[in-house]
Amino acid sequence: MNISVVIPLLNEQESITELHDWIAKVMQSNRFSYEIIFIDDGSTDDSWATIMALSQKDENVKGIRFLKNFGKSQALHAGFAKAEGDVIITMDADLQDNPEEIPELYNMIVVDKYDLVSGWKKKRYDSVISKNMPSKLFNWAARRTSGVKLNDFNCGLKAYNNNVVKNIDVNGEMHRYIPVLAKNAGFTKIGEKVVQHQARKYGETKFGMDRFINGFLDLITIWFLSRFGKRPMHLFGALGVIMFAIGFVFAMYLGIDKLFLNQTGRLITERPQFYIALTTMILGSQFFVAGFLGELILRSKSDSSRYLIKQELNF
Rank of each mutant, 00 (worst) to 15 (best):
residue 313 L to P: 10
residue 164 V to Q: 03
residue 198 Q to K: 14
residue 112 D to Y: 02
residue 196 Q to R: 12
residue 102 I to C: 09
residue 102 I to F: 02
residue 54 L to W: 04
residue 93 A to W: 04
residue 85 G to R: 01
residue 117 V to W: 02
residue 90 T to M: 00
residue 285 S to A: 11
residue 153 F to G: 06
residue 81 A to Q: 14
residue 122 K to M: 00
residue 306 R to N: 14
residue 52 M to P: 12
residue 154 N to Q: 10
residue 51 I to L: 07
residue 15 S to K: 02
residue 209 M to E: 03
residue 179 P to L: 01
residue 118 S to K: 07
residue 138 F to D: 01
residue 221 T to L: 13
residue 155 C to W: 02
residue 182 A to C: 08
residue 56 Q to S: 14
residue 314 N to V: 07
residue 158 K to E: 01
residue 115 D to T: 08
residue 279 T to M: 06
residue 34 Y to M: 06
residue 279 T to V: 05
residue 190 I to K: 04
residue 88 I to Q: 03
residue 255 G to R: 05
residue 256 I to F: 03
residue 85 G to M: 03
residue 266 R to H: 13
residue 189 K to H: 07
residue 106 Y to N: 07
residue 138 F to T: 04
residue 298 L to M: 14
residue 36 I to Y: 00
residue 200 R to Y: 02
residue 36 I to L: 06
residue 208 G to K: 09
residue 304 S to F: 13
residue 124 R to Y: 00
residue 273 Q to D: 14
residue 269 T to A: 12
residue 265 G to K: 00
residue 101 E to K: 07
residue 159 A to D: 03
residue 308 L to H: 13
residue 270 E to P: 12
residue 246 I to E: 00
residue 30 N to G: 10
residue 304 S to P: 00
residue 219 L to V: 13
residue 78 A to N: 11
residue 97 D to C: 15
residue 296 L to M: 15
residue 290 A to Y: 09
residue 39 I to W: 02
residue 123 K to G: 04
residue 3 I to Q: 03
residue 152 D to A: 08
residue 33 S to V: 11
residue 107 N to K: 14
residue 186 G to D: 03
residue 92 D to P: 12
residue 238 A to Q: 12
residue 174 M to N: 14
residue 40 D to V: 10
residue 94 D to C: 08
residue 192 E to D: 05
residue 154 N to C: 12
residue 221 T to D: 11
